[in-house]
C-alpha cells in the first residue's frame, strides 16, 4: 500500500506561496511531523507546511497528494512532478503542472497562467478555465509543452500552446488570442471559439477545430487531398475526450496549411 497525503489550508493565504516542493512522490515516504516541518516560501518569508495546512495521511492504492481549500495563491503546484496523483479540490494558482514529466494532476476549479507550461509528460486536467500561456513556454524558454496530455474543461486565455512541441492539448471551451502561436508540433483540439490571430507563426503541428470554425487567415492555404487515413487515427485518438470530439470520425475535415508567412507546414483540420 502507498500513502495519500491530504493538505487542508487552515486559512486564506495573504500572498502567493510557492508549492512546487510539495510533490506526491516526495511526501509519500514522510511522516506527518516531517511534512509539517518542510519549508515553504510565503512571499519573502519562509514558513513551515504545518503553519499553513492541516495534514492527514491515509493508506491508498497509489501515491497521492490532495490540496483542499482555496488554493488560488498556491503557485507551482506539481512542478516537475514525475509520478503519482495530485488533486486540487478547487481553484489553483499559476504554473500548475509546469515541466511535469509523469503522473496525473487534477484541478477541480480554475487555474492561473502558464498551466502545463513546458510539461513533458503525464496528464493534467483542469476542471475549470485556465489563464494565459497554458501549454506554452516558461518565460525565457524556447519550448512550450513537449509531451503529455492537457485537458481544459472550461476556457483558456491568450497564447494557448505557444511554441508547443509535442503532446495533446484539449480545450472544451473557447480560447483567447494567438492560439498555437509559433507552434512547432503536437496536437491542439478546440471545441469552442477562438480569438484573434490563431496559428500566428505556426511551423508544424495540428489544430483541430471541432466546434466553431475560425476565419482562415490569408497566410493559410487549403489542400484538397484525401486525409481520411490520418483523420481516422486522429479522430479515434480524440474520441475519449468526449463531446464534441467523440463524433469527429464521421465528420470529414477540410484542411488548411500554414502559417505560410513563417514558411510553416502546420495544419488546421476543419471537420464539416
Amino acid at each position: 500500500m502507498s500513502q495519500a497525503c491530504h493538505l487542508r489550508l487552515k486559512h486564506a493565504l495573504p500572498v502567493g506561496v510557492d508549492a512546487s516542493t510539495l510533490l506526491p512522490e516526495r511526501l509519500a515516504t514522510l511522516s506527518i511531523d516531517e511534512i509539517a516541518r518542510l519549508p515553504l516560501e510565503l512571499g519573502r518569508d519562509l514558513v513551515a507546511v504545518g503553519d499553513l495546512f492541516d495534514i492527514s495521511l491515509r493508506e491508498a492504492d497509489g501515491v497521492e497528494l490532495r490540496f483542499e481549500g482555496d488554493c488560488r495563491k498556491l503557485h507551482g503546484v506539481g512542478r516537475a512532478m514525475g509520478e503519482g496523483r495530485l488533486v486540487v479540490d478547487g481553484p489553483v494558482g499559476d504554473q500548475v503542472g509546469v515541466e511535469m514529466r509523469g503522473g496525473e494532476i487534477q484541478v477541480c476549479g480554475d487555474a492561473g497562467d502558464l498551466a502545463g507550461g513546458a510539461m513533458a509528460g503525464g496528464r493534467l486536467e483542469i476542471g475549470g478555465s485556465v489563464g494565459d500561456f497554458a501549454a506554452s513556454t516558461l518565460p525565457g524558454a524556447m519550448d512550450g509543452m513537449r509531451g503529455g496530455v492537457l485537458i481544459v474543461r472550461g476556457d483558456a486565455g491568450d497564447r494557448f500552446g505557444d511554441r508547443m512541441r509535442r503532446g495533446v492539448a484539449v480545450v472544451h471551451g473557447r480560447t483567447g488570442d494567438f492560439l498555437a502561436s509559433r507552434m512547432v508540433a503536437g496536437t491542439i483540439a478546440l471545441a469552442g471559439e477562438t480569438g484573434e490571430h490563431p496559428g500566428h507563426g505556426m511551423r508544424r503541428g495540428t489544430l483541430v477545430f471541432a466546434g466553431a470554425q475560425p476565419r482562415v487567415p490569408d497566410t493559410f492555404s487549403a489542400t484538397h487531398h484525401d486525409t481520411r487515413v490520418f483523420w481516422a487515427l486522429m479522430a479515434r485518438s480524440l474520441a475519449p475526450f468526449g463531446a464534441p470530439f467523440d463524433g469527429l470520425a464521421a465528420r470529414c475535415p477540410a484542411r488548411v496549411v500554414g502559417d505560410l508567412g513563417a514558411d510553416g507546414k502546420g495544419e488546421w483540420m476543419l471537420p464539416a
Binding site: 495540428t206 487531398h225 484525401d226 487515427l233 486522429m234
Partner: peptide, 24 residues
C-alpha cells in the same frame, strides 16, 4: 522533406505525400 511526423497515442506515424494523397 515534405513528410510529416505525427505522434498519436504514444505512437509515431509518418505521413508521406504521394500522388493519391498521403502514405501513412
Amino acid at each position: 522533406g515534405w513528410q510529416i511526423s505525427k505522434m498519436i497515442d504514444g505512437k509515431r506515424y509518418w505521413r508521406v505525400p504521394v500522388m493519391d494523397g498521403e502514405f501513412v
